[in-house]
């Protein structure tokens, strides 16, 4: 299982690195927000508040749409071709999900590098901890995205997911903190798991490590990971998937 995961992961990373444009392209939207919206935001807020929001936006867009690739692999028969090998189905999922994680890592590094150039000054520990949180969240989201892609109507997946991502980004408080929102919107945003992760990231980027907000973010990420990977595994194990 581990070996097959590794084999697929290495292959996937090779393909990803060859498509550098694709990796950068997936990060264009948050980069635009960073460069064209950041300077306005920082007249009243801080980079340490804005950048975590853009990282969450990046993760949601980039990983939420990961399932699009599997639709393509299913349609072309590649997935089935792999399903007749002795490789475990869990490896077929994990190899892909870990590849997606590499994409997200590269995109996040790019975003952080530009943010640093513009004025972000987050402590190293906070950056690393935030990074781990985002990667776990991102690969869980990718697994969930595969499960949705393999379950729902193929034609609907791309439009449905790209539409679903927008309210999730807004409700997580990516652009402006939810503390600025009216009560009903603030309450509504609590249903989005990404809000908790985002607020934890903001604390971490401000150098506040041992807060209730960070604990809540870690807990929500852990639960989200377990749920998503369980659903992903079930769907990959299902016949006809």
């Amino acid at each position: 299982m581990l070996r097959d995961t590794w084999v697929l992961f290495r292959h996937g990373v090779g393909v990803t690195l060859r498509q550098k444009v694709g990796v950068v392209f997936g990060a264009v939207q948050p980069l635009l927000f960073l460069v064209l919206f950041g300077p306005i935001f920082t007249t009243f807020g801080t980079w340490e508040t804005l950048v975590p929001g853009l990282i969450i936006q990046l993760g949601l867009m980039s990983m939420g749409l990961a399932g699009f690739g599997i639709v393509f692999e299913k349609r072309s028969g590649v997935l089935e071709r792999m399903r007749v090998t002795p490789a475990s189905r869990l490896a077929l999922l994990l190899g892909r999900v870990l590849t997606n994680a590499v994409t997200l890592i590269l995109q996040t590094l790019l975003l952080l590098a530009v943010a640093f150039a513009l004025g972000l000054r987050a402590p190293a520990l906070g950056l690393v901890a935030g990074f781990v949180l985002v990667v776990v969240l991102g690969l869980s989201l990718a697994a969930l995205s595969y499960a949705v892609a393999l379950t729902m109507n193929e034609q609907l997946f791309a439009p449905a997911m790209s539409t679903a991502v927008i309210p999730l980004v807004l409700l997580s408080g990516s652009f402006l903190p939810m503390s600025m929102a009216p009560g009903w919107l603030d309450a509504l945003s609590h249903v989005s798991p990404f809000r908790y992760v985002l607020e934890a990231l903001r604390d971490l980027f401000h150098g506040h490590y041992l807060t209730g907000t960070v604990a809540a973010g870690v807990a929500v990420t852990a639960v989200f990971a377990v749920v998503s990977l369980t659903i992903g595994t079930r769907v990959f194990n299902r016949e006809n998937a």
Binding site: D4, G77, A87
Partner: peptide, 22 residues
Amino acid sequence: AQGGGILPTAPLKGELELQGML
């Protein structure tokens, strides 16, 4: 399979070697 299993966008060599490793 009836419809085959070739990814139109990938070089075949790498795909074949991956399949062998699986």
